[in-house]
Write a protein that binds this DNA or RNA. Sequence first.
DNA 1: TTGTAAAGTTAGGCGCACCTAAATATTCTG
DNA 2: CAGAATATTTAGGTGCGCCTAACTTTACAA
Lengths: 259, 259
Amino acid sequence: MSPSRRTRRATGRGHSGGGARHGTAAGQALTGSVEDYVKAIYELAGASGGAAATTDIADRLAIAPPSVSGMLRRLAALELLTHEPYKGVTLTAAGRRAALRMLRRHRVIETYLARQLDYPWDRVHAEAERLEHAASDELIDRMASTLGEPAVDPHGAPIPSREGTMADIPQRMLADQPVGARTRVTSVSDDDPALLRYVASLDIRPGASVTVVERGPFEGPLTVRVSGKGGTERQHVVGLAVARAVNVDAPRGPARRGG
Amino acid sequence: MSPSRRTRRATGRGHSGGGARHGTAAGQALTGSVEDYVKAIYELAGASGGAAATTDIADRLAIAPPSVSGMLRRLAALELLTHEPYKGVTLTAAGRRAALRMLRRHRVIETYLARQLDYPWDRVHAEAERLEHAASDELIDRMASTLGEPAVDPHGAPIPSREGTMADIPQRMLADQPVGARTRVTSVSDDDPALLRYVASLDIRPGASVTVVERGPFEGPLTVRVSGKGGTERQHVVGLAVARAVNVDAPRGPARRGG
DNA sequence: TTGTAAAGTTAGGCGCACCTAAATATTCTG
DNA sequence: CAGAATATTTAGGTGCGCCTAACTTTACAA
């Protein structure tokens, strides 16, 4: 068994340690870390191509700011973003492409887990967070195809297409809606399972109608009326954290009429 | 946004760098590397608890022998194996448990990909090789449950149970069968996609009947008669690499009668 | 039994991705 | 506009998991 060994190793990895784990077909092979950074920056800066701050990235990835500083230098060298020291970073076209690819992976996986494997709403995120780095493009596409190319994930977030385009659904936080506005829930932020479970227990899900009935003073809690799919109508008082996690579409005409 | 950061980071990762990526519920949290080593050693040493050689491990993982030496020391510290320097390594009970867990993950994923996502036979292995490290135990169990707790993977290898036990199907290589023996294919080694495609093209799959008709001299090629499921009967000359990748169960009575 | 080939180990390095502590730049506030 | 608070970067360090080169142990054969 001796000659085969040298041969195989000589063919594969070349020289020094560390490095990328697996190929991804699109462009270079990115590590899981790089993928996480790019996705986080995209989510912070938005599709508009704005800048993201070091501290915000650090916060989102639960990493110390100096570590982020160092990594940003490497991401800039990879031409995934431009870095103006002390100012912030902006994704390049390649960076946005990489980010949208990860967003697609994440959301396709979430949708697949929920629909095909009966995963509960609040657990798909954590599972997808790990699988999105390990799945091949083929697997993602097979999942999407099995699901009939879904347009949104279980939390209502739009799924980027295979080609890397995403519907730009205008999002506004429930927290910003005026009293009396009748809105439709488009999506719910998915990164806190406990909050997600709580929101679901209030029947606040994509598609539900929510009307702001009252608003406490000094950024206080909101009283909202929720019309679920089954015609149910309930009223709740929710804190700002909840109101900020819920995104709604355009107001659907003033709800109040007689008062 | 400043106070939340310190808090979150202080809660999570503690101090120094590197380390495990994600928890696995069973025992400690093992890195992907550790999982690969343990699985490889199990496959080399067999369920019988034999010893594995450094070079063989290195060969199987496509890693240089000194790297393996170093890692074995760490695996020994984790009490997953015992290491007699210059002799070889033997998995402990914990090591065998960890290996069987990985084997289950790998084979459940392979089966799921093939049955639910129409993955071709020869591509499930590579995909599973990456997913097995990222999937949670919950996901594996949901997959297995969806499939009706399958007993074997697409290549015929037995799937360890949730509790970590595996049917010990006696395996013998087709290459070792005597001329005239009529055997049933139990499994086909899955790590070489090209070989797998070739074997499939000969209708040699788990369940097929194979009779050794002739055997070339000096470890030469074998002539085999293959009876597929559809009652087809074909004859092929296969090389030793193929004959060694195909495992068969007990001979099913002598096939020849008048000869 | 002794000499050599093969297998295995030690020694010394490297890149990645993280860390803390300390310096520096920017932004707010009085 | 000075000083404080905050954001960011530099400096120096760690463990992991790999590498090559060189050495040691073991196994086999003359």
